[in-house]
Design a protein around this nucleic acid. Structure first.
Length: 595
RNA sequence: GCGCCCGUAGCUCAGCUGGAUAGAGCACUCGCCUUCUAAGCGAGCGGUCACUGGUUCGAAUCCAGUCGGGCGCACCA
């Protein structure tokens, strides 16, 4: 396998065999395991203790050293000893490790390790050697993960309500690919329900308009002028053939054409955000292929679907309520409020009935399913997770990630949106106004289950208040260092890391934490953690940089000291590499200069 | 009424699935700009982690309940 030239990172590219840098923390986990094994053999510990609660992590307070281990506290009770005694035994073993400078017992029984300087210098070299693969891992072990996100109804352009889920889903997919999962990015096209019928009728109105009629879009149809070109295309293709024709003659055709046009538009909108799905699955095709019937048969065989009558909804005055017998899924067995119909009384599938089959289909080629949904669909999570569990025998877990609402603000005032009037803020408008990178980064600066404000003024502000700018600025500064070093020195001397001081080593430690962040973000499926980490790393870098303001000898480029400059530049570039890697996971470009 | 999410500094939010003295930005106070990009920097002030119980060596984190806010409660999608 050719080494040397780094190959370009592609989000969905995970199958190649790669060599991964074994991370510092993974090494110590292995060290600790063998130490504990040895203690078991010598009878210092009972055999087969549960080690899962043992954590090796950086201490919150740097004065506690580089690494904290809670093993003595976790194991003391099952080992029927006290944390202190166990800690003493562990200290003796840990001190034998080459990478360990010293070990202290602190607090209720923490083992605080201080690592040797050589260890941190090696970490810095590891970052440089691994480049864009520093942080990449085989955590997922090739597990096939299907991430379904966006899946906006094909009835109009993308609006800002779709944006957050799109970005979070995309970043999550990238993150999973980077951590060794085999990822499929999927979009479910809801082209079979009543809404696309309405779309077809709306297109017919625009079709008549294109043929010269003066039309008014009737109440209940889609008024947006994005259907005008669709009508024009239909007019050009079919002439006036369907003007006075009964709906049955043209509706299916117009619906199909309109959906295709809407999907083209949506794909373009998504491309503006750098989002490209691997697979678009059609609900209509799913139904035509008889998939819902298959799913129904499977569930009926397990007595999870029965024909029954739903109870009258409580607390609502509804004279229209009539008891009807429908095929119902026993979602109450899984904690849902009521059993859910999979078909309507007219015999067509409910959304849930088709969606259940759709997930069944996805599960056939995946080990895990992830859905990114808006929080307004929270009420339907139980029924679908229950159905997937039943259909797959629990073998393919479904994780539904709910994304909370985004409130758009302009000058501190909420921007009003109304889908019905067609008056909504489109994704394309926002991307055009503030830029792809700002939109993506901002959407990832809040955990998904918290609501969020998106203020047009604040997100483009060039100041420290704005994390997008702050992180980009750090990267741009690092890029400018390279240019300036070339101007100042031409050729730099070989890098000698002994020129780095404790401030610099502290920065190495911050940068070396990146793989842990990536791993935890992937495990928890929370890409926002990368954004917060990058902000912290950028802050550490800026602080280092600013030391040069007070003391010129602490600047990165010191004209009189090329050896020192070379070492500091090497460190700066490593930090830049980490920022690039993190931004790449977020789908955000790393700027080489601020404009 | 029921379900899900949220409640952490005056404000906006983190808190790495149970760890040590709960963190960052803004705001406020004090001190710093003839710059390797001050598009800021350093220091300080500021908390009953909504409340009450429980679980254990140890809780902002897990469990139960209460209060407050958001979203949802069709055979819709």
């Amino acid at each position: 396998m050719p080494h040397g030239k780094t190959e370009r990172f592609r989000p969905s590219d995970t199958l190649q065999v790669r060599e991964f840098t074994v991370t510092l923390y993974a090494r110590f986990a292995a060290h600790l395991d063998s130490i504990l094994d040895g203690m078991e053999e010598r009878g210092q510990l009972p055999a087969a203790l549960d080690r899962r609660a043992i954590a090796i992590e950086p201490p919150r307070d740097a004065s506690h050293g580089d690494m904290a281990i809670n093993a003595a506290m976790v194991l003391a009770k099952p080992a029927k000893t006290n944390p202190r005694a166990l800690a003493e035994l562990l200290v003796a073993e840990l001190e034998k490790l080459d990478e360990v400078e010293s070990v202290a017992i602190a607090g209720p029984g923490f083992l605080n390790l201080t690592l040797t300087r050589a260890t941190w210098e090696a970490e810095l070299n590891a970052i440089q050697a691994a480049g864009e693969d520093f942080g990449r891992s085989d955590l997922g072990a090739g597990l096939r993960v299907n991430v379904e996100y966006v899946s906006a109804n094909p009835t109009g352009p993308m609006h800002m309500g779709h944006c957050r889920g799109a970005v979070v889903g995309d970043a999550l997919a990238t993150l999973l690919a980077y951590t060794g999962h085999q990822v499929t990015r999927e979009y479910y096209v809801n082209d079979a329900g009543g809404q696309v019928q309405v779309l077809g009728r709306s297109a017919h109105v625009r079709y008549r308009e294109a043929l010269g009629e003066t039309v008014e879009v009737p109440e209940g149809l889609y008024p947006g002028d994005y259907l005008v070109p669709v009508g024009q295309a239909l007019a050009k293709e079919f002439g006036d053939r369907y003007v006075g024709a009964p709906e049955a003659e043209w509706l299916a055709l117009f619906r199909t054409r309109a959906v295709a046009a809407m999907m083209d538009m949506i794909r373009d909108d998504l491309a503006l955000l750098g989002i490209h799905h691997d697979l678009f699955s059609s609900e209509a095709q799913l139904q035509a292929a008889g998939k819902p019937e298959e799913a129904e048969a499977t569930l009926r065989a397990r007595d999870l679907i029965y024909d029954g009558v739903l109870e009258k909804p409580k607390g609502q005055a509804d004279e229209e309520w009539e008891p009807v017998e429908l095929p119902l899924f026993r979602s109450t067995q899984f904690g849902d409020d009521q059993d859910r119909p999979i078909k309507k009384s007219d015999g067509t599938w409910t959304y849930f009935g088709a969606d259940m089959a759709y997930h069944y289909q996805k599960a056939a080629t995946a080990d895990q399913l992830i859905d990114i949904w808006g929080a307004d669909h929270a009420g339907t999570v139980k029924r679908i997770t229950a159905a997937v569990a039943a259909l797959t025998g629990g073998k393919v877990p479904l994780d539904v990630k709910l994304i909370q609402m985004v409130r758009l603000l302009r000058d501190g005032e909420p921007v009003k949106m109304s889908k019905r009037s067609g008056n909504f803020v489109t994704l394309a408008e926002v991307v055009q106004e503030v830029g792809k990178d700002v939109v993506r980064f901002t959407m990832l600066t809040r955990k998904p289950d918290a609501q969020m404000d998106f203020d047009f003024a604040k997100v483009v502000e060039a100041s420290k208040d704005n994390p997008v700018f702050y992180v980009q600025y750090a990267h741009a500064r690092i890029s400018s260092l390279g240019r300036r070093a070339a101007e100042t020195f031409g050729e730099l001397p070989a890098v000698d890391l002994s020129h780095l001081g404790t401030d610099e080593i502290a920065l190495v430690k911050a940068a070396a934490n990146f793989p842990r962040i990536v791993e935890s973000a992937a495990k928890n499926r929370e890409p926002h953690r990368v954004a917060f980490y990058l902000y912290d790393l950028a802050a550490a870098f800026h602080a280092w940089w600013n030391m040069g303001n007070d003391d010129p000898a602490k600047r990165v480029i010191v004209a009189e000291a090329p050896e020192v400059s070379a070492a500091r530049l090497y460190l700066g570039r490593a930090v830049g590499q980490i920022i690039r890697n993190g931004l790449m996971l977020m789908g955000v470009a790393a700027l080489t200069e601020m404009t």
